[in-house]
Design a protein around this nucleic acid. Structure first.
Length: 425
RNA sequence: GGUGAGGUGGCUGAGUGGUCGAAAGCAACGCUUUGCUAAAGCGUCGUAGUCCAAAAGGCUACCGAGGGUUCGAAUCCCUCCCUCACCGCCA
C-alpha cells in the first residue's frame, strides 16, 4: 500500500512512476485523493461534534455530582447524538473506501527499474554455466513416463487437469529436493525454517497483496474467509503482521517449504505441458524482513541464495531483471532466475526475487522501533523462490539424460536419494 | 463440539458508569551524584488520525473486534475472534 501522504504531496510524481507499469493509474490516484479530501472534512466535522459532546457531558457530570439538575443540558446534547451517529457512519465509509482504493494501487517501481512494456524488454543480467549439448533432447514428460517418475493421468483421475502424482523414485526425488533446499538455506544462508499452515485468513492475503485485486487467481473456501496459500510468501511474511519488532532482531530470514495452489485463471492453455504449470506445486520460499536501508543489499543476497541452488546442481541458468511493465503488483524491483531446460529448448522461470520495500509492511502494519528516532518505522519485506520445484525437476531430468535413456542426478543429491543418483526404468 | 476463566500501553498489572489515555512496577531514554564493573535521585516516555503554512499547541479516536444502552462506557448488554484449563471426539 502506498502512503497517502506521498500521494497528497507528490501526486504527479506518483502518477509518472506508476505509468511506467504500462497501465493507466492516474484516474485511480485522483480518485483516492478526492476521497481523502472528503474523508478528512468528514472527520474534522465529527471531531468537532465529539468535542462538543464531551464538553457538555463533563458539565452534566459536574452538575450531578453536586446534586443539581442537568435535564436541560441532557436534552440539548441528545440531538447531537444523531449528528454524531450520521457523521461517524459517513467518515467510516469514506475511510473504508479510501483504503480499498489504495489497496488496488500497485507499488511504485524502483527508480532504476528498466522501463519497458512487457517481458521482451527484460534485460539479462548474467548467465551461469553452459547449455548442455544434446543431439536428441527428450521432453520431461516422455522421460517421466518412460521411467515412471510421475503421472499426469493419475493427477487428472483424482483432481483434474493441472494436477500431478509423483510415483516411486520420482516421488523420492521431489522429497529429496525439498530437503536439499531447506538444508541449504538453513545451514548456509542463515534462514530459519518454518512450516506454516496452507489455509490462510483473508487479511493475510491482503497483507501480501494477493487480495483484493487477484481473488480470481486464488482457491478460496466457500465462506470466503480462508484461502489456499498461492505461495509460502503469504503465511510466512504474515507471521510478523501487526508487530513492532525489535530493531536488533532484523534482519529476519525465514525459509519454508509449502505446496502452492493457483487457479492460473489467466493462463489457460499456456505452458500446460507436464510439470511446467500446475494448479498445485511445491516450492521452497525465502522471506526476509529487513531494515529499510538494507533492503536492496538484501535483494542481491537473496537472489544469490536462490542462484546457489542451481549452481550446486550444475544447472545452466540466467538471471534477468523485470522491466517496469512486467513487474509484479507489489514489487518495486524483481529479479527472475530462469533455468535452462534442454527438452523444452527454453529457459524456465524457477525463482522471482522481489523487494517490496514498505508496500506489504504498510498493508500488514509490520514495523520496528527505530532506536535513534524512537519512532515506529515500517520494515521492508522481500521474498523469492528458493526455488520452485517442478521446473527445477524438469531441468534436472532433461539435463541429466544419459545416452542409455537413464537420468543421472547431480552428485549433490545422491545422499538425499539414498545414495543412488541414477533414475532408470 | 461442551463447560469455565480470561484478553488493558514494549512487558507485568490496577481499574465495575463521569475528573481514566488509563494507577503502580519493570524496561527504555535524558540529566545529576557517587564510583571497582553497578547503585541512587530527578525528569521524559503509547499509537493513529486531524486542525494550523509549519513548529508550539489544540482536538478526536483507540483498553481483543464489531454492534447496542446512556448526556457520558475500559467499566453494563449482545455477537464474534483469540488464549488458557478441564471434558468429549479424533490423526
Amino acid at each position: 500500500m502506498l502512503d497517502i501522504r506521498l500521494l497528497r504531496e507528490l501526486p504527479d510524481a506518483v502518477k509518472t512512476r506508476l505509468a511506467a507499469r504500462n497501465a493507466e493509474f492516474a484516474p485511480q490516484v485522483d480518485a483516492v485523493l478526492a476521497v481523502d479530501e472528503e474523508r478528512r472534512s468528514a472527520e474534522t466535522r465529527l471531531q468537532d461534534l465529539n468535542a462538543e459532546r464531551n464538553r457538555v457531558s463533563k458539565e452534566i457530570g459536574a452538575l450531578k455530582s453536586q446534586g443539581l439538575d442537568a435535564a436541560e443540558l441532557q436534552a440539548g446534547v441528545k440531538t447531537l447524538g444523531n449528528d454524531i451517529a450520521e457523521c461517524t457512519c459517513l467518515a467510516g465509509e469514506l475511510e473504508e473506501k479510501q483504503r480499498d482504493l489504495l489497496l488496488r494501487l500497485p507499488n511504485l517501481p524502483h527508480e532504476n527499474a528498466p522501463v519497458g512494456t512487457d517481458a521482451a524488454a527484460n534485460p539479462v543480467l548474467r548467465e551461469w554455466g553452459t547449455k548442455p549439448d544434446f543431439e536428441n533432447p527428450e521432453d520431461h514428460v516422455a522421460i517421466g513416463q518412460r521411467l515412471g517418475l510421475f503421472s499426469p493421468e493419475l493427477g487428472a483421475k483424482i483432481s483434474g487437469s493441472g494436477f500431478m502424482v509423483y510415483t516411486g523414485r520420482g516421488a523420492r526425488l521431489e522429497r529429496a529436493l525439498i530437503s536439499f533446499l531447506l538444508d541449504l538455506h538453513t545451514t548456509q544462508h542463515g534462514y530459519t525454517e518454518v512450516s506454516p499452515p496452507f489455509l490462510i485468513r483473508r487479511e493475510c492475503m491482503v497483507g501480501t497483496s494477493q487480495l483484493p485485486k487477484f481473488e480470481e487467481d486464488m482457491y478460496g473456501m466457500e465462506d470466503g474467509a480462508m484461502f489456499l496459500a498461492p505461495t509460502a510468501e503469504v503465511p510466512v511474511t504474515n507471521l510478523r503482521r501487526e508487530e513492532i519488532v525489535d530493531a536488533t532482531e532484523l534482519p529476519i530470514r525465514y525459509t519454508a517449504y509449502t505446496p502452492c495452489f493457483r487457479r492460473e485463471a489467466g493462463s489457460a492453455g499456456r505452458d500446460t505441458r507436464g510439470l511446467i504449470r500446475m494448479h498445485q506445486f511445491d516450492k521452497v520460499e525465502l522471506v526476509q524482513i529487513v531494515h529499510p536501508s538494507e533492503s536492496y543489499a538484501a535483494l542481491e543476497a537473496l537472489t544469490g541464495h536462490a542462484e546457489k541452488v542451481l549452481q550446486l546442481l550444475g544447472l545452466h541458468y540466467r538471471t534477468i531483471e523485470l522491466c517496469t511493465g512486467d513487474l509484479g503488483f507489489g514489487s518495486a524491483k524483481t529479479y527472475d532466475i530462469e533455468v535452462w531446460a534442454p527438452g523444452q529448448n527454453a529457459y524456465l522461470e524457477v525463482s522471482s526475487c522481489s523487494n517490496f520495500e514498505d508496500y506489504q509492511a504498510r498493508r500488514m502494519n509490520l514495523r520496528f522501533k527505530d532506536p535513534e528516532t524512537r519512532k515506529n518505522v515500517f520494515c521492508h519485506t522481500l521474498n523469492g523462490s528458493g526455488t520452485a520445484l517442478p521446473r527445477l525437476y524438469v531441468a534436472l531430468i532433461e539435463s541429466g539424460l544419459q545416452p542409455d535413456g537413464s537420468v543421472l542426478l547431480p552428485e549433490r543429491l545422491a545422499s538425499y536419494m539414498g545414495g543412488d543418483r541414477v533414475l532408470q526404468a
